[in-house]
Design a binder for these strands. Sequence first.
DNA 1: CAAGCACTTTACGTTAACGTAAACCTCGTC
DNA 2: GACGAGGTTTACGTTAACGTAAAGTGCTTG
Lengths: 146, 146
Amino acid sequence: MTRMPQATESNADALPRQQRTYSIGELAQIFEVTPRTIRFYEQEGLLAPSRQGQKRIYREKDRVRLKLTLRGKRLGFSLAEIREVVMMYDAMPDGNARQLKRLLELLEDKRANLARQLEDIRLMRLEIDDVDQRAREVLRQLEDTP
Amino acid sequence: MTRMPQATESNADALPRQQRTYSIGELAQIFEVTPRTIRFYEQEGLLAPSRQGQKRIYREKDRVRLKLTLRGKRLGFSLAEIREVVMMYDAMPDGNARQLKRLLELLEDKRANLARQLEDIRLMRLEIDDVDQRAREVLRQLEDTP
DNA sequence: CAAGCACTTTACGTTAACGTAAACCTCGTC
DNA sequence: GACGAGGTTTACGTTAACGTAAAGTGCTTG
């Protein structure tokens, strides 16, 4: 029982199974990246779209994956880090205890990382505000004395 | 809680101007980077230590610069971005109005960036917590059925 | 004085994350 | 049937941010 593509999650809403799909170009436009980037993410194991002949077909799940990936990137995570979490998440349903515990550790790591980032943001904001103040003052001086 | 080295900024007030200095090795140790990194930042215009003969001498100002640089890095900024702000800040005292306004724009950009990061962190935390929950559940199931 | 650090410059190497270009399908449309 | 708009693979190029190695300088310590 490796994988059941059918009805997996709790999102088994009453919706009819008419999944919306995307071409690579559409997805690229939505997230303002190039198709190259999306193919690259696939090559790196972050996406696994199905095919229709030769063409890649992206479902909602893939779109969400991409969204999460890009969010991770904006936060400075490497693709390797992102993949690690994503793959563990996928392996979760039939994962053994060791893997699950490893996943929990990983998550704790990420949490710590985010916490530090929050602090960094706080400090950087203070500095930016400070520089802003000074700049405005100097500017006022300049404009007050023609 | 990354343990800060003793000397803080606020205790420098009434002290005579006997600036403490650092060698490149000391600085590297403090911030847990290699000397190579510090030299590279200098080459990229982010630091400008004075010299004593051939050796680089770092003052408090340089240390702060490095600290800010590394903080920027942790937040995913490129060295180029960091340098831009740093250089404008340096040029402030005798900057003309146009430069100052440009600086204010830059700061606004950074602020927006940080705001988005905050939102990204918020969302990512939610997801992490969610994955955590699921993992714990699966784990409990596993351990409940030997 | 030899040895050992800590520092220096110079220069080539490496990795991640794509960009760019070439050469090829495949489909609808003019 | 020519063609343009999308898609595909393959492969080499590029950039940022350092790592690493070689060869030299200067101090101080056994």
